[in-house]
Simulated assay, not measured.
Amino acid sequence: MLIEDRNENVAPAKKKSTGRIDGVAATINALARAIIHEDTTSVFEKRGPRTL
Rank of each mutant, 00 (worst) to 15 (best):
M1C: 14
L2N: 05
E4M: 11
E4V: 09
E4Q: 07
E4D: 02
D5V: 00
D5G: 01
R6E: 14
N7Q: 12
N7M: 04
E8L: 01
E8H: 03
E8C: 00
N9I: 09
N9F: 08
V10G: 02
V10C: 02
V10L: 08
A11V: 11
A11M: 13
P12H: 03
A13K: 10
A13W: 08
K14P: 03
K14N: 08
K14L: 14
K14V: 15
K14C: 09
K14W: 10
K14G: 10
K14R: 14
K15W: 09
K15N: 13
K16E: 07
K16W: 04
K16G: 03
K16I: 05
S17Q: 01
S17Y: 07
S17T: 07
S17C: 09
T18W: 04
T18A: 05
G19M: 04
R20Y: 02
R20A: 05
I21L: 12
I21T: 12
I21E: 00
D22Y: 06
D22Q: 05
D22P: 02
G23C: 00
V24K: 00
A25D: 10
A25C: 06
A26L: 09
A26V: 05
T27S: 11
T27Q: 07
I28D: 00
N29Y: 00
N29V: 04
N29L: 07
A30K: 14
A30W: 06
A30T: 09
A30V: 05
A30F: 08
L31F: 10
L31T: 06
L31W: 08
L31K: 09
A32M: 07
R33T: 11
R33A: 15
A34D: 14
A34W: 03
A34S: 13
I35D: 14
I35C: 12
I35P: 00
I36E: 14
H37F: 10
H37M: 13
H37K: 15
H37W: 08
E38A: 13
D39M: 11
T40G: 10
T40V: 13
T40H: 12
T41Q: 15
V43T: 14
V43L: 15
V43A: 15
V43G: 12
V43Y: 09
F44V: 15
F44N: 11
F44Y: 15
F44T: 15
F44G: 06
E45A: 15
E45W: 03
E45T: 11
E45D: 15
E45K: 11
E45V: 05
K46T: 13
K46W: 06
K46D: 10
K46H: 13
R47V: 13
R47S: 12
R47W: 05
R47A: 11
R47F: 12
R47D: 11
R47Q: 13
G48Q: 04
G48C: 10
G48Y: 02
G48H: 06
P49H: 01
P49A: 05
P49R: 04
P49G: 01
P49W: 03
R50L: 12
T51P: 01
T51Q: 04
T51G: 03
T51N: 06
L52N: 07
